[in-house]
């Protein structure tokens, strides 16, 4: 009975691992994404993410729909979320807020009008004095 139970657990874990389809960072190879932050270097408080999106020839992609998620390294920290829908000349200026000093991971997921999707993650080190508002209010 115990052996069967153990076997069942191992079988479930293995089959789950084989079928897992993590949606992490699906990437369209022909889309270039660059991130700059204002102010630079970034400090705690309000900021602007300047995201430049081009194709493989360097031509701007203006009509991407972007979902932006800023995570801190620590588990349990509510992320900062933002969206953008149009970027003049492929440059999307997105209001953002660094709620705490430290290491951030900014994940940009995008969808183009032709159905292609892409995502990139950037490391950002945020310093400075803190006026933290975890409520997001």
């Amino acid at each position: 009975m115990k052996r069967w139970f153990l076997f069942l657990i191992i079988a479930v874990l293995l089959s789950a691992a084989c079928t897992r389809a993590s949606r992490e960072l699906e990437t369209a190879a022909d889309v270039e994404v660059q991130l700059m932050v204002e102010p630079a270097p970034p400090v705690v408080g309000e900021a602007v993410l300047v995201i430049t999106i081009t194709d493989e020839t360097g031509a701007p992609l203006e009509d991407a729909k972007l979902d932006i998620k800023g995570d801190m390294a620590h588990a349990g920290m509510k992320p900062v979320l933002a969206t953008a829908e149009r970027g003049e000349g492929g440059v999307y200026r997105v209001p953002f807020e660094w709620t705490m000093a430290g290491d951030w991971f900014v994940t940009i997921r995008g969808a183009l009008p032709d159905g292609r999707t892409f995502s990139r993650r950037f490391d950002v080190s945020v310093g400075g004095e803190m006026d933290m508002n975890m409520d997001g209010s």
Partner: peptide
Amino acid sequence: LLIIYDGLTGPQLAPENMATVSAW
């Protein structure tokens, strides 16, 4: 077992992973 499984096979961003959220 979930911590082990998701920690080894899931997203490696701590706030998105059951291992780090549930343990820490």
